[in-house]
Design a protein around this nucleic acid. Structure first.
Lengths: 345, 345
DNA sequence: AGTAAAGCCTATATCGATTTAGATTATCCT
DNA sequence: AGGATAATCTAAATCGATATAGGCTTTACT
């Protein structure tokens, strides 16, 4: 039977201006606080009538667990931490938006910790882990032997990466197949008879940069195309920096007839560089780029693009870390997005 | 004298694999836990020797307060919540980055809650306030009588807005003076003898949209220029949508000789629309835009731009909410960025 | 000397939730 | 009927930090 204690009304149990707690429900139902807790958590030793009653009261008064209380007692934070580089592209905001959307309704909150490109990579990760301020992490800008990944694996902290490491089979990741992108991009350029190509690559330390270059050079060799990496700027730099570097390269070598880029911003810079040298896009020269915005072609229909879907990444990464938290025994979730080259079909 | 209790070494006081707490320091120093707490918080009733000792131990063992403990006891979360719309521009990522940078070292964490443009504006705000999951909020996309602002002011929750309401003198804000932008933009167009102008405006509900239009139309009237708002798209829509709407307008009225836009993306769409109609930018027609990326002019030197600095906004907003938390009695911090029109000088 | 006032520290209770151990009642079996 | 066994629930302890009240010294003053 449900207790011998007196039941109370909401008004009697809840001081004005306060939020309902387990104690509120306990007083209203005449049950003990732990019973209420266990009922809400569907523990096996609570009667079904009691559970029903408790849940009804909780719903009626709009009870929401105090996250600090849960966290203090259990160590569970219900926070997913997205640690993200703040290079000025809008991958960033889209990734944030899609992770957040996927987390909606899961009870997890999204905490975003940006770091400047020149900061120590380990700092935010260590902080989150040491202060246990999140149940899981999502990181991007991955290096092949990323020290953050080593750190997180060793400590068995749930995480997922946007990009692959050499240990990628052992942890969840989402990645765009940049090697295939490189091969396809170069094949398209070969098709258009380009002979001398430069690439505005991401910082070379990052895995996707290396893969993209590998793909590009494999196919370049096959077709006898000359490939160079643009010195003096990476696709993480801002547009003016890339423009200056590209113009310098084009001035030094007039035979360059194509630029491959890894971002929309880089494609704009490459386009401007060619035009400032009075080269005609799509005729004398080509620019080919990954395009996650799909406005590149609107802006200049002569641009060559291969689509990349950033939204899918965030959604997948969110699901991947939740699985890593809840079912650590399951194999890590993997997804490799293969670019499709419409021009090749 | 510092207690009669036995002192302990770190190893004795701290179970392996655990993080140091106040208790650890208490055992190592022989002091009581509350004394340690008060010493670290520089309470006036703790001796300076004791404070020095406690702080040294804390530093040595790398003590960091457990945030759940603090939060549960005090209600302080040490979290600033940035609630941000996920329209696809890169204001977003820059704003996030600059708020985070300004928060660095303050002890506050940044929690980002994105919402989709069509979501209920109140939902995330209510959730944060009701679960008390942040000490302060920063919101953008402000309407003149923004219901979120009314809600937050009534509840006396510290917050700051990126944009102004009609109650702006009573709450912290950072804003770009869009009315002056509108006047300057139109003055420049008048100078260039444009007669029929359309504007790709932000959603009309938002305050900055109304201000911009007010500025534009004031000056348009003065110079006898015809001004219309582009139907069918706002500057929050994606580039293809804006392009289609702009092209439709240009086709319907060949006399349109200038487009004013509120974002870089809109400027790209406007440019493409004119060019698809075979109009020559800077000669037959003009596009004038706010430019927070400074790559617009690189991309097309004929574009007219007025600079906007988003980075300053985040930094200011962060300081503004911290002041609102710590010194609620002080007048709210305000900043109005006045655009400078290089072309006018 | 005796008492008051600082100065400095400790003991206890508390925030909200959960875990563990223990208590109570009803049920079942021989 | 007696005793074991389930089925349900309650009591107490705990996570880490801090607010409040109170205790013990030492110094100061009459």
């Amino acid at each position: 039977m449900a207790g011998t204690k007196a039941k109370m009304t909401l008004e009697a149990a809840l001081p004005p201006g306060q939020k309902p707690t387990l104690k509120t429900i306990a007083q209203m139902s005449g049950l003990a606080v732990p019973t209420v807790s266990r009922a809400l958590n569907d523990a096996p030793d609570i009667g079904s009538q009691t559970k029903k009653l408790v849940r009804k009261i909780a719903d009626d008064i709009g009870y929401v667990p105090n996250r600090a209380g849960v966290r203090l007692r259990t160590g569970r934070t219900n926070v997913i931490s997205l640690i993200i580089s703040t290079a000025h592209d809008n991958h960033t905001s889209r990734l944030i938006a899609s992770v957040a959307a996927a987390l909606d309704g899961t009870g997890f909150h999204l905490n975003v910790t940006p770091y400047r490109p020149n900061d120590d990579l380990m700092k935010p990760v260590k902080y989150i882990v040491e202060t246990r301020s999140a149940d899981a992490l999502i990181i991007n800008q991955i290096e092949p032997e990323d020290p953050r990944v080593a750190y997180l694996m060793e400590r068995k902290v749930p995480f997922a990466t946007h990009g692959r490491t050499k240990w990628a089979d052992k942890h969840p990741f989402y990645d765009f197949d940049n090697e295939i992108f490189g091969r396809q991009a170069m094949a398209i350029l070969a098709n258009r008879n380009r002979k001398k190509v430069i690439v505005i690559a991401p910082p070379i330390a990052q895995n996707y940069s290396q893969e993209m270059i590998r793909g590009l050079s494999t196919t370049a060799v096959k077709h006898g195309i000359d490939l160079d990496i643009l010195p003096g700027a990476t696709s993480d730099d801002d547009v003016p920096t890339m423009l200056v570097a590209a113009q310098k390269a084009l001035a030094a070598d007039r035979s360059i007839d194509a630029i491959v880029t890894a971002s929309s911003a880089a494609a704009l810079a490459a386009t401007a560089a060619f035009e400032n040298m009075n080269r005609t896009l799509g005729k004398d020269v080509d620019v080919i780029s990954k395009d996650s915005n799909s406005f590149l072609k609107i802006f200049r229909s002569e641009l060559l693009t291969l689509p990349e879907t950033v939204g899918a990444a965030g959604e997948f990464l969110a699901r991947a870390v939740i699985q890593a938290i809840r079912n650590p025994e399951l194999p890590p979730m993997h997804y490799l997005e293969v670019p499709s080259a419409p021009e090749l079909e």
